[in-house]
Design a binder for these strands. Structure first.
Lengths: 156, 156
DNA sequence: GGACAATAGTTGTTCAAACGAGTAAAATCT
DNA sequence: AGATTTTACTCGTTTGAACAACTATTGTCC
């Protein structure tokens, strides 16, 4: 029904919409995978962050700011993970304001179960690009977001 | 608190997470802008699609599939736009199943009011990249998503 | 050391996204 | 022409995101 190709108002708009569209297409692939485990991508990222950290427990808000996509709703996100037995919370003894989150054995097992199909998922998403293209893409994306990163972010 | 940089399991994962992160940073900038008008980016895109189309009315589901990000919930999205007076709906006379959506004069005015600050927003997002870098980025993003586009999509 | 501010998290509420089931009209297929 | 399928939404429900207000604890500054 729609025959006209939309024009873009600026190269910057074209790039942003292309970025959005591309993310949306790849996201669909990943979310289809995670839904098999009743997980969202955000929930997975919390578990991944907890697993990959060299410390065994992370304060709740530190989780929130270090996720790929910032979680305003970190409390209830962790609630759901705790309900399912993948993480455990305990109040810090040195600072009774902070709540430390750690991954459980069940959480680790879940990550192990997911690992190989997630790797395959990333291949499905991006396996058609050559190594050099991926590098260039990663580099350009970093250049795009660097001015928009908070200084304390993990994601520079 | 988190000192370790996460390693990536594969270049493809690195690229995907970089894409997600980058989109998330730029999205925040755009959504801050749209929130001044009580709009979401998706709602804006519906209006933009309606305005840019050479036909004056578009079937509801055709809208849904041609948005930057697919809208499962297109009915209520259009509901909200209609409530605010920015679009109007009418049932097609030739096919009584389809509902045609068209932008109103108020909707067009809204787009005009937004235009200049949105352009500025895109500059804030991406103005720090050189023209050649933007081109390269747009090209790489297209290459990434092409295999994941439906054949009838606007977004190849 | 007491007032004030900052930090860390929680809770309430509203709004939007996701998923599936349901309805009505049109197209297709004997 | 009647049964079946497909198309084009629509609606109900559950879940998650966004924003702001609130509590508890710690830090700071005369």
């Amino acid at each position: 029904m729609l025959k006209t190709r939309l024009h873009f108002d600026s190269p910057q708009q074209e790039a942003y919409l292309g970025l959005w569209r591309t993310y949306d297409r790849l996201r669909e692939i990943e979310e289809r995978l995670f839904s098999h485990w009743g997980l969202t991508a955000q929930q997975y990222n919390v578990l991944r962050l907890l697993e990959a950290s060299h410390v065994d427990a992370i304060p709740t808000l530190s989780l929130a700011t270090n996720l790929v996509s910032k979680a305003a709703d970190i409390t209830r996100l962790v609630d759901r993970l705790e309900t399912r037995g993948w993480v455990r919370r305990e109040r810090s003894k040195t600072d009774r304001r902070t709540v430390l989150v750690k991954i459980t054995e069940a959480g680790n097992e879940l990550l192990n179960q997911i690992a190989s199909s997630l790797d395959q998922c990333h291949q499905d998403q991006l396996g058609h690009l050559a190594a050099g293209e991926l590098e260039k893409l990663v580099e350009l994306l970093r250049k795009v977001r660097t001015p928009h990163e908070a200084s304390d972010s993990h994601w520079i």
